[in-house]
Design a binder for these strands. Structure first.
Length: 767
DNA sequence: AGCACGCCGACT
DNA sequence: GTCGGCGTGCTC
């Protein structure tokens, strides 16, 4: 290094500062000085390393050229962890706004959205003594797996003389595009030598690539020819293509009955976005993310798709993330959290089954992915498509107001009629031959006929366990959870009573905790008992059960595969049986007790019941043979059940909206004000913000649902030595106000809100 | 989250 | 007299 003493010193450049979000439970970023030697490598969205108290942490730059707040003396950024910014400004803005809206610490939100650091970045940091040995960075050590991918060299001249196995390999490549060496081993013995010789001839090209043993890409998929759309599909496709070509952001509600071909509409719209070299994002409910669904997209668009799912390792997730970020892959498919996938030049976001409750993250960073999809698409100037056979009433009323454009698909291609639904009034029908009144005579007969015809049946019961509660015949008390006071469910096979609210479990006792008498009797029917009764009554029929107790993750598909292979005649299950792919042998669907979801203490109970019945009914008759649905209920005249039986969404939606109006609700709920009084303004604010955070994600507690109206946090006012905080909330529950108040107070009592505040809740006005 | 500071109970 | 409980506050 040389120093020229005669050169005048450079004028000192003004010190620059940036805000960095750190992975801490703190809802703001911290200001750091930007050393001039790092300035060229730091931009919005960059991942940097910073000193923080006695530690060093990785963080994301959320603002550049900020001014430090008064009284703080920023420390300098210590290093840059990656050369390229992790987030583009648009996605960063979305994440910042989501963190802000749902009142969650920005650093934690960004950490959750970001991929793991590259191993070499971690090593370099550690070598420079920057990271303490104890510092865990996500995914710092994940095994990588690389695979040899073989592709045809385009337009290569073929020598006349080729071995039969060489020709076989070339033919395979022609139909498949590209193949991994491992896959070739399934078709030819010792493929390595053949590939090597073809590579020497310049006919194929090999490339080492990091790839996963991903279940979504395990099986090869033949490419498909797009089917000719029906006229209804054509109209929807034209509307979406038109919006994509106009480059105007627009949100569409695609209302299409089960089997009406919504997926084909998504495929065509996404194809148009791809033709415009724009990115696409498809969100599906957690449970619907299956290899079959992904297969349809692979068949149309090839394997260059990022499938984001929870089984990915940190390494796999980072690979998928970087492929999207770089623009090498332009289509992402995933559940809720995929809304934060770094898709470039977003042209379209599709939210399939937009009414599905799994779009709502219930824990930690509470957010509604469907709402964020609308926001993200709007920001990106992209088209957003919300698809459902049974739209949420929020989306439906927005469509009615003209805020979303409504597209309707009413015909089932191939004119498979929706199955007829029979309502069985449990109060009027004698119990069937099984002796259990929950298997009525009509249902019993229908099951017999189904089995006799060699068909399969699905029996839906939304209650896990053997019996939902135990009652003491001596004193009449129910066995309840010591922590939650919720009735304990008997899980006979596990030998446990279990609380479905907090997961408390204890061995099944014989004596009543209240009076000590040995008189506990099971009350009610769960899937475990139903399975037993069916196996006994319809022996030798093969009965299986699918619920959270029997199935975890991949085994859901395993059970459904067994049904497809006809190894099971009767399938008992909870919600889980309503989703997933076709079960063509199922001709009968029985809903054991529709009242169950109707009795839920939630203002959306009727809506959920309609959705559930519609979905479960859609499972019948998807194959060659016509389907049939039996719904058992004690409320045969309830409008949600009757509308579901008639496949009448419009009728249901109008009745439900009218019902909510009459009860003083808006389409989304009802207005209340929550007032928090506390001696300490910061604690009052903290309590209020927590309530807002819960409310924004539509879940204050299991029993009280509210959402926030207007800007929050509202100003604090001082009143007689107390600090008063007022929130405007819209309760989403029936009956709402007492429950909302109770759950807010309960949370404060639990210390969850971190303040000993007093709260009152009063109605303000109707919308 | 981690870490320091701080003010009240049982101990070498 | 000190060790340590975790309540409260702060970290750029």
């Amino acid at each position: 290094m040389t120093i020229d003493l005669f050169e005048p010193a450079e004028p000192a450049a003004a010190q620059r500062y940036v805000d960095v979000a750190l992975p801490l439970p703190v809802r703001r970023a911290f200001t750091y000085a930007l050393p001039s030697e790092l300035a060229s490598r730091v931009a919005l969205g960059s991942r940097v390393a910073v000193p923080f108290s006695s530690r060093k942490l990785p963080g994301i730059v959320t603002r550049i050229d900020t001014t430090p707040a008064e009284g703080v003396s920023p420390r300098p950024i210590a290093g840059v962890l990656e050369d390229e910014p992790l987030f583009d400004p648009e996605l960063l803005a979305l994440l910042v706004e989501a963190a802000d809206y749902y009142l969650h610490p920005i650093g934690e939100v960004l950490r959750a959205a970001a991929p793991a650091l590259r191993a070499e970045a971690v090593r370099a940091l550690r070598a420079s003594g920057f990271l303490e040995s104890a510092t865990e960075l996500p995914g710092a050590r994940v095994a990588t797996r690389s695979v040899l991918v073989v592709r045809l060299v385009p337009d290569a001249e073929r020598p006349a003389r080729l071995g039969p196995r060489q020709r076989q390999l070339l033919a395979l490549l022609e139909s498949r595009g590209e193949v991994t060496l491992e896959e070739l081993a399934d078709h030819l013995k010792e493929p390595r030598a053949i590939v090597r010789s073809l590579e020497q001839k310049g006919l194929v090209h090999t490339e080492s690539r990091e790839i996963t043993a991903d279940p979504f890409f395990r099986d090869p998929v033949a490419s498909d020819a797009p089917p000719e759309p029906t006229s209804a599909q054509r109209a929807a496709i034209d509307a979406l293509v038109g919006a994509l070509r106009a480059s105007q952001p627009a949100t569409f509600l695609l209302h299409g009955v089960t089997g009406s071909g919504k997926t084909e509409v998504y495929l065509r719209a996404i194809a148009e976005a791809r033709a415009q070299r724009k990115g696409a994002l498809l969100l599906v409910p957690e449970i619907a993310l299956t290899p079959q669904l992904v297969g349809r997209f692979r068949a149309r668009f090839g394997d260059s798709i990022a499938v984001l799912h929870s089984a990915l390792t940190e390494k796999e997730r980072a690979v998928a993330w970087r492929a999207l970020r770089s623009g090498a892959v332009t289509l992402a498919i995933g559940a809720r959290s995929a809304i934060f996938a770094p898709v470039r030049d977003l042209g379209i976001i599709v939210v399939d089954e937009e009414h599905d409750p799994s779009y709502k993250q219930e824990e930690g960073f509470r957010y509604q992915a469907r709402d964020l999809a609308i926001l993200r698409a709007h920001r990106a100037g992209a088209v957003c498509v919300l698809g459902s056979a049974t739209p949420s009433l929020e989306s439906w009323s927005l469509a009615r107001e003209g805020r979303h454009r409504l597209l309707t698909l009413d015909a089932r291609p191939g004119a498979r009629a929706l199955p007829p639904v029979e309502i069985v009034d449990l109060a009027r029908h004698a119990k069937g031959p099984s002796g259990d009144r929950r298997i009525s005579a009509p249902l019993h007969r229908a099951i017999e006929q189904t089995l006799a015809a060699g068909d399969q049946a699905v029996l839906f019961l939304n209650r896990r366990g053997f019996s939902p509660s135990l009652r003491c015949e001596a004193c009449g008390e129910l066995e309840t959870c010591p922590a939650c006071s919720v009735p304990l469910t008997e899980h006979r096979r596990a030998g446990l009573v279990r609380c479905h609210y907090c997961d408390y479990a204890a061995p099944i006792g014989t004596t009543c905790r209240a009076c000590g008498q040995p008189a506990l009797e099971p009350l009610g029917l769960g899937t475990e008992k139903l399975e037993e009764v069916l196996a006994h009554t319809f022996a030798p029929a093969r009965v299986a059960r699918l619920d959270r107790d029997t199935a975890t993750g991949a085994s859901i598909e395993d059970v459904l595969d067994r049904v497809r292979r006809r190894e099971i005649d009767l399938l008992v299950g909870t919600q889980m049986v309503t989703k997933g792919h076709d079960l063509p042998g199922v001709t009968l669907v029985g809903v054991i007790l529709a009242d169950q979801s109707l009795a839920f203490p939630d203002f959306r109970a009727a809506e959920r019941t309609f959705q559930l019945l519609t979905q479960v009914a859609g499972r019948a008759g998807r194959g060659e043979r016509p389907g049939r649905v039996i719904v058992q209920t004690y409320q045969p005249h309830h409008f949600a059940i009757r509308a579901a039986a008639k496949h009448d969404f419009l009728g249901f939606a109008e009745s439900e909206l009218e019902d909510r109006r009459e009860l003083g609700y808006s389409p989304y709920g009802r207005l209340v004000a929550v007032r928090i009084d506390h001696g300490d303004p910061d604690r009052a604010r903290a309590a209020a913000e927590l309530i807002v955070a819960h409310a924004r994600a539509h879940e204050l507690s299991k029993s009280g649902r509210v959402e926030v109206l207007g800007p929050a946090p509202a100003p604090i006012e001082r009143l007689r030595g107390r600090w008063r905080f007022r929130l405007m909330l819209r309760a989403r529950e029936r009956p709402p106000l007492r429950r909302v108040a109770q759950s807010v107070i309960a949370r404060i009592d639990e210390g969850v809100l971190g303040a000993r505040a007093s709260v009152d809740v009063d109605p303000v006005s109707m919308l």
